[in-house]
Amino acid sequence: MSWNVSRVSSLQMNQFNRDYISQATLALQKAGQELSTGLKADLFADLGPRASVALTLRAREENTQAYTTSNSLLESKLEAMLISVDAVRDQTSEVLELSLVSASSSSLGAGALQAQARAALEGTVATMNTSYNGDHLFSGTASDQAPLTRWSEVNATTGLSPEEVLSDIVGTGPTSVAEADAMISEIEAFFASTNSADPDRNFEATMYNGTPLLDASGDPSTRITARINEGQELVYGVQANDEPFRETLKGLAMLSLVDVSQIEDSATYTRWMEVVNTALSSGTQGALESSSSIGFNQQVVATTQEQLNDMSLVQRTQISDYESVDPYEAATMVSSLETQLQASYSVTARLSQMSLLNYL
């Protein structure tokens, strides 16, 4: 009687089975992950050199999403700016209407002008001090501080309030055309910030706290800009020291400082009201132009957002082509591996129960 001895021992067979089961288990885990996520578990192993293309596309998509998010914030910011500018224009228009009616005679409602102008002045300052997400909208690049000092509030830097500076100029009001012209000249110098004799008595010292119109070199200061796409910047800064708002504040201040119904000389009254109405009209028109500019910027951002969304769709489709797995293939692979593992477990179990003694 002869015996045939296998060249592979039972120990080796068990080791082979364990190795196979370990590899199949790892493959099943990978296939299960791909089935649940819909994405390749090991991008570099599956794509090889093409993995760099997928990574580049994903980096571009992240950049696109960053622009989309920042532009959404900018859209909200522009909307807040537009609402604020329109509110200032509406308040000014109401005062201008009454002022125009009273332009030729103090008997036609001039007595109500001072109170209405003071309310509009306070409202304009409060509106221009609007902030969004902690940034003051009309302070220029110095957005960490409110642009305008309130009318009766003392400026911490100069120790003066806007009302105090301008009241020193006007006193009890003009009594003649010459006196009115002298006061108007000083008031204009204040709002133009051209008082070199006493710089503290300038608009951009006592009343305005944001980015000045001109830098230390006398050049226009840098305006707030936003990068809305690769290679595309948008200059959108509207400041409280822009001419339309300085004109608005000047006209409202002139009415707040002087009860024009008490100006007895008709020529002086007419001269004062002429300057007031010119300033308010200029401010209203300028505010309308600022609103149009903001609206144009809103359209630019909206168009850019559409382009970014289209680009994102293309990029995400391309990324999916590289990184996604076929769910049917993934499910088939999982099923096949499960079957193989079950068979391997069954064989291993049978081998473990086998013994030479069973055949003796």
Score class of each variant (00 low, 15 high):
Gln353Gly: 05
Glu306Lys: 12
Asp321Met: 04
Ile184His: 11
Thr64Gln: 08
Ala27His: 08
Ser52Lys: 11
Ala287Gln: 00
Thr149Trp: 05
Glu153Trp: 04
Val276Trp: 02
Leu57Asn: 05
Val325Cys: 03
Thr225Lys: 15
Ser346Cys: 12
Pro212Val: 07
Ala146Leu: 06
Asp144Arg: 04
Leu47Phe: 03
Met13Gly: 13
Ser344Leu: 06
Glu233Ile: 02
Leu96Thr: 07
Ser193Pro: 02
Ser336Val: 02
Thr64His: 04
Gln318Ile: 04
Asp259Pro: 08
Gln145Asn: 10
Leu160Phe: 02
Ala180Glu: 05
Ser196His: 09
Ser312Ala: 13
Gln23His: 01
Pro199Tyr: 05
Thr64Arg: 12
Val276Ser: 04
Ser261Thr: 10
Val300Asp: 00
Val154Met: 09
Thr56His: 11
Gly231Thr: 00
Leu82Ser: 01
Lys30Thr: 12
Glu289Lys: 02
Met333Leu: 13
Leu57Met: 10
Val170Asp: 13
Ser72Asp: 13
Asn229Lys: 09
Ser167Thr: 12
Ala110Lys: 01
Ser335Cys: 01
Thr124Gln: 08
Ala112Lys: 14
Thr25Asp: 04
Gln307Asp: 11
Met1Lys: 15
Thr92Phe: 13
Asn229Asp: 09
Asn277Trp: 08
Thr194Arg: 13
Leu252Tyr: 01
Val347Met: 01
Thr130Asp: 02
Ala240Tyr: 00
Asn209Ala: 04
Phe190Tyr: 15
Glu338Lys: 15
Gln315Gly: 11
Leu43Gly: 01
Leu166Phe: 09
Ala80Tyr: 11
Arg227Phe: 11
Met128Tyr: 13
Leu96Phe: 05
Ser106Met: 14
Val170Lys: 04
Ala205Val: 00
Leu98Gln: 15
Leu337Gly: 00
Ala126Trp: 12
Lys40Met: 06
Ala343Gly: 11
Pro327Ile: 00
